[in-house]
Every structure is written in C-alpha cells, then in structure tokens.
Write a protein that binds this DNA or RNA. Structure first.
Length: 430
RNA sequence: GCCCAGAUAGUGUAGUGGCCUAUCAUGAUGCCCUGUCACGGCAUCGACUCGGAUUCGAAUUCCGAUCUGGGCGCCA
C-alpha cells in the first residue's frame, strides 16, 4: 500500500512510496534518488552491493521525472533530508519520462513563463508552482463557504449571450447556429434579474471573457469572476460584505496554507482590516495630481500610473468611493444627495484594482434615462429592462477578480501565474 | 487599437563586422567515484526564427515576414 511521502517517518519499518524522480545522484557504489509526490520529497538511498539485481537494473534505466514506485526499509538517519531514508527492496518504473525535459522541474535552470505554460503539467510539478494552485483552491473553498454562511445561493448563468449589454469591453463573437452570439463578459445583468426573481442573495463564480487586445501582466481574456448581488442592500452593505470576505479568505489561507505561502516567499500575508479605508474619488484624484507628472483633473479615469501612486500612498487594501456618475456605467445608482456622484466603488490592492461594484439603479424609468444619457439605445436592452417593470427590489453587488486576488495575495508578478491554463492575447493552447 | 523591446543547443544565457568550426550553466550519453543533498572529476553530444540586402567577410548592420514579451488605453 503506497503512502504519502509526508507520512513516512523514521519509526516506520517498511514503506512503499510512489512519485516522480526529482533528482538523482550516483556516487558509484552508492546512489541517491529524490522521489517527489504531492506531499513532499524524500530520499531513496541505494547501496549498490546490498540491493537486489532488479533494483540495480531499474535505477540504471530510470530517468528524471519518471514515475516510480519504491518499496523498502525506512532508516532513521541524520544524513538524509527529513531524518529518514528508504533503502529499496523493489524499484519499479511505472512510466519512464522522455529526455530531454521541456523544462527543469528541479529549478536549477530558470524557465520563462512562455516555456513554462507550454509545458504547464511539468511546471506544476514544481512545489512552488503547485503551492499557488493549492492556495487558489483554498481561496475558492473559503469564498464558497463564506458566502453560503452569509445565506447566499449559488447560481449559474449563461456564458453564451446575445449581445453587449454591460457595455464597455469588447466581446468575443461565436458561431451559434444561425444567430449572432457572444461569450459573456460579466454575469452582472443575470444576477440583477435574479434580484427580480426574489433570490435576494446570489453568487456566481465563473469565467468571464473579454476580447480586449491588451498585453499586460494583469489582464486575461478569460478570467474567473467572483460575483455577488444582494437585494435590499446599498453600496455600503456590499462593501462590508466584501471586507468580511477578504478577511475570511486571507485568514483561511494564512491558517491552512503556511507551507505554500513559505514556498512562495510570502512571510506576511497581510490580512486586510475589517474596516478598509474609503477614499473618495475626489481625494484619490488629488493624491494622483499631487505626485503625478501628467496633469490629472476631476472627471478623469484613474490610469495605471495614478493607481500606483495612490496605492503607494494607501499602503494596503482600500476602497475608492463617490465616483462621478459620468465615468461609471449606466446601471450605477446616483447618490441621493448629489446625483453627480454615484454609489459605485472599487476595491483596490496597492498594486491594482481587485473588485468593482455599486448600488444598482432599480427604478425602470430612471435606468432607461441613464442608458440614454450614455448614448446607448434602451431598445437593445429589452431583456434586461423587463424585470425592472415588475417589482425590482433595491440592490447592490460586486465582481471580484479571482486571479487578481490570488496574484496579489501570493505576490505573483504575472497574472498568468495564477491560472493553470491562461488565455491571453496570443495563447489558446494548451 | 497605439507604442517599445526581443528571438542563439531541451532549458536559462554570453556575444557590438574577421579572434565564432559560437561562451557558460544546466541537461543527456559514457567512464571513475559508498553519504550525496546545486555531489565531484574526465570525455562526448547539442543552437544563431525565416527571407532578402549591404560587405571581401554577418549571430552581429539594414529591410521585410513570422513568433513572442512588455507598456499604455481599458478593465477583474
């Protein structure tokens, strides 16, 4: 019976392990093999004069990254990593790896991201890379359980959609029988429809597709969005929800993924405060204008340079609030006291935007007016507007970029690191 | 969409017109080696993205193509 490497302790007499050949060192009469599985790496020591002929044959045959199953005596020894080593009675090659390898799993030689993504299955064998996806898995699990505990129901909405409705980004057209169709850029409108459906609290975690031709370390053309929508809530309610989520997720990772964080060199996961600063847009502009070389004025979008300046100033997660209505989408609810600003917000990490949300406009006629004022045609929005005519409660929500969350949490330099098989401007395989 | 940069063994690199039948590391193969842990030693193998131009001579300069990375706009 094969046991995980992590569970091989010096007090075991005998064990069978299975995994990949991480490294081999042949000293002549004595050879060492490092065998790696999901749980760790351990040393197999082969005194050539004392092992069966079959073992000698196998170790001559085996190559790096081959899959092997090794059974033998466990010896406690100071000289081996982990304080124990295995002396094989049998050494089976389950699957021999071809040579040369497309990249060096043992990380003696670095590989560029492109090379790594072309051989992602090998890349993920590296403990450091596997850690990212173990953390990502924990983030997703913590997010799900947090939202279920908060009384949300999980919904699934279509990714094949009829038209651009949220506006803004470009969509991918797809061949859909005789109709025109696109890949969904956001579940936003469907979430809102479910507010009219009386669901009150919904979430969806799923792919979003954006056909923007940007080529940066923080954009993907297929990303994972953590989306929520809440009835009878305003922007402040859902910002607080987001704060609780962030704290819960960071705490879960800090509690359960200490080894993985260590692999990534993250010594302080910087668990966000319960109450994050609310930085009004006007003040954000002031900070940016004060330190920026380019002129920035109220009403401008916050560019990458501005975001960086403000992020340095803030030093930790923060919200940007009180956005001008003019530069936010039509569905944002204008502020009661001052309609020139709206109840929209962005959650920022010092490095980049993580989430965007708002209290939504739930009043049909006002929504139509706002669609018009953005230069759009309400006729094209009929399927979206219909629910607003039959009892749409006030509601608010946000979308949080899962990859950006993992990226900033783990200190990754490229968002592609946070996705197993990223889709970017050029990459469609593997 | 705009702008910048790059492409050399499986991988990561050196290279600035002749000293390049191209450097180093890692790897692979063979030999030596019984405590390695980036094992060590010796030998061998393996590359200039493609097409054109300049030149006596091009990995190196120029033009084009292809592929790729990155920045910006925008956004999660």
């Amino acid at each position: 019976m094969r046991i995980p490497i992590q569970e091989v302790t010096p007090d075991l007499e005998k064990a069978t392990i299975a995994g990949w050949v991480h490294e081999e060192r042949d000293l002549g009469g004595l050879a060492f093999f490092l065998i790696r599985d999901r749980t760790g790496i351990m040393q197999v020591t082969v005194p050539k004069k004392k092992v069966p002929e079959a073992v000698l044959h196998a170790i001559k045959e085996v190559s790096r990254e081959s899959v092997v199953r090794v059974t033998g005596i466990i010896k406690a020894t100071e000289k081996a990593p982990g304080g124990r080593e295995l002396v094989p009675e049998s050494f089976e090659i389950l699957a021999k790896a071809a040579s040369p390898l497309p990249l060096d799993v043992a990380e003696k030689v670095p590989a560029e991201i492109d090379t790594r993504l072309d051989a992602r299955f090998l890349d993920v064998r590296r403990p450091r890379i596997a850690s990212i996806f173990q953390i990502r898995s924990r983030v997703m699990e913590a997010t799900h359980s947090f939202l279920f505990n908060e009384g949300f129901i999980n919904i699934t909405t279509p990714k094949v959609v009829a038209a651009a409705t949220e506006g803004g980004t470009e969509l991918f057209p797809i061949a859909y029988f005789e109709k025109e169709a696109f890949l969904g850029q956001s579940p936003q409108l469907y979430k809102q429809m479910m507010m009219a459906g009386g669901c009150e609290k919904v979430f969806e975690i799923g792919p979003i597709f954006r056909a923007e031709e940007h080529n940066t370390v923080r954009h993907l053309n297929e990303a994972t969005s953590i989306d929520v929508e809440v009835s009878f809530a305003d922007h402040e309610d859902v910002m607080q929800l987001l704060e609780r989520l962030m704290r819960t997720v960071y705490q879960a990772v800090a509690d359960d993924c200490a080894d993985q964080l260590a692999h990534l060199g993250v010594t302080d996961p910087a668990i966000p405060d319960t109450t994050l600063p609310r930085l009004p847009y006007a003040e954000a502009i002031e900070i940016a204008a004060r330190k920026s070389e380019d002129p920035i004025a109220y009403g401008d979008d916050l560019g990458t340079a501005s975001e960086r300046i403000i992020g340095e100033e803030m030093g930790a997660h923060y919200f940007i609030t009180e956005w001008p209505t003019a530069i936010r989408p039509y569905y944002a609810m204008p502020n009661e006291r001052d309609p020139s600003i709206c109840n929209a917000f962005d959650l920022m990490h010092p490095r980049m935007e993580l989430s965007s949300g708002a209290q939504r406009c739930h009043i049909h006629d006002q929504l139509v007016e706002q669609i018009r004022s953005k230069g759009l045609s309400p006729e094209g929005f009929e399927f979206y507007l219909k629910p607003f005519r039959y009892g749409m409660p006030p509601h608010a929500g946000w979308g949080l970029g899962a990859e950006r969350l993992v990226m900033t949490m783990c200190g990754l330099q490229n968002i592609r690191e946070a996705v197993l098989f990223p889709r970017d401007r050029h990459r469609v395989t593997p």
